[in-house]
Amino acid sequence: ENRNGLVVDVETTQASGTAEWEAAKRMIGRTVQSGATVGADKGYDTADFVSHLQGLGIKAHVARKTSGSAVDGRTARGKGYALSLKRRKMIEEAFGWIKTVGGLRKTRHKGVAKLAGQALLCFAAYNLTRLQTLLAPRMKLLPT
């Protein structure tokens, strides 16, 4: 969720050539409603992924490749597209946090199930720290 920088879905998969795209499609199907936008990095700028989003009625705000991009020029010229690319940095901060603070740079567990539990716990902890930052101005307004 790039408006506030919160993680709304997590899925851990066995690495393969297409596992990341397939997991993204499943997570989008679970959490994103039609009419929304989905931002992603250049690795997702494929005709298959962008057409899948269009089929769901979701706007693909995927960073464009320099040549052969699947994102059309009309989408890329929009103000919302530029804003999505700017805000995508907040999501990358979540991944940086779980690698450094959360300890997922080098996991201590073997197996997808154990690693999935650790990843879910780390992202939940990240959301709690992020919520503390988001709610801090409101907490000052409450009477003591």
Rank of each mutant, 00 (worst) to 15 (best):
E1M: 15
E1Q: 12
N2A: 06
N2T: 08
R3F: 05
R3Q: 07
L6T: 06
L6D: 00
V8Q: 10
D9K: 08
D9F: 08
V10I: 07
V10L: 05
T12H: 08
T12K: 03
T13R: 15
Q14S: 13
A15G: 01
A15C: 01
A15E: 00
S16W: 04
T18A: 09
E20W: 04
W21T: 15
E22A: 14
A23V: 11
A23D: 05
A23L: 02
A23I: 11
A24M: 04
A24R: 07
M27L: 11
M27W: 01
I28S: 04
G29H: 08
R30G: 13
R30W: 10
T31S: 13
T31I: 08
Q33Y: 07
S34C: 13
G35I: 03
G35Y: 05
G35K: 11
A36Q: 10
A36N: 06
G39T: 15
D41G: 06
Y44Q: 07
D45P: 10
A47E: 05
A47V: 04
D48L: 11
D48T: 07
D48F: 12
D48Q: 14
V50C: 09
S51L: 10
H52K: 10
L53E: 03
L53M: 02
Q54L: 08
L56R: 11
K59P: 13
A60I: 01
V62N: 02
A63D: 04
K65G: 10
G68S: 04
G68I: 01
G68Q: 09
S69M: 12
A70T: 01
A70N: 05
D72E: 14
D72N: 13
G73W: 04
R77N: 11
K79W: 06
K79D: 12
G80L: 03
G80K: 06
Y81L: 00
Y81Q: 00
A82Y: 03
A82G: 07
L83C: 14
S84I: 03
S84L: 01
K86A: 10
R88E: 00
R88T: 06
K89V: 00
K89P: 00
M90H: 02
M90V: 04
I91V: 09
E93T: 10
F95R: 00
G96S: 14
W97Y: 06
I98P: 00
K99I: 10
K99S: 05
V101C: 02
V101M: 06
G102H: 02
L104T: 12
L104C: 12
L104P: 11
K106R: 14
K106A: 10
T107P: 02
R108S: 04
H109C: 06
G111K: 01
G111P: 08
G111T: 12
V112Y: 07
A113E: 14
A113V: 08
K114Y: 12
L115P: 01
L121G: 04
L121Y: 06
C122V: 03
A124R: 11
A124E: 02
Y126N: 04
N127Y: 14
T129C: 13
L131M: 15
L131G: 04
L131V: 13
L131E: 08
T133L: 09
P137T: 11
P137A: 04
P137N: 05
P137D: 07
P137W: 00
R138I: 07
R138A: 13
M139N: 12
K140N: 13
L141F: 04
L141S: 10
L142G: 03
L142N: 03
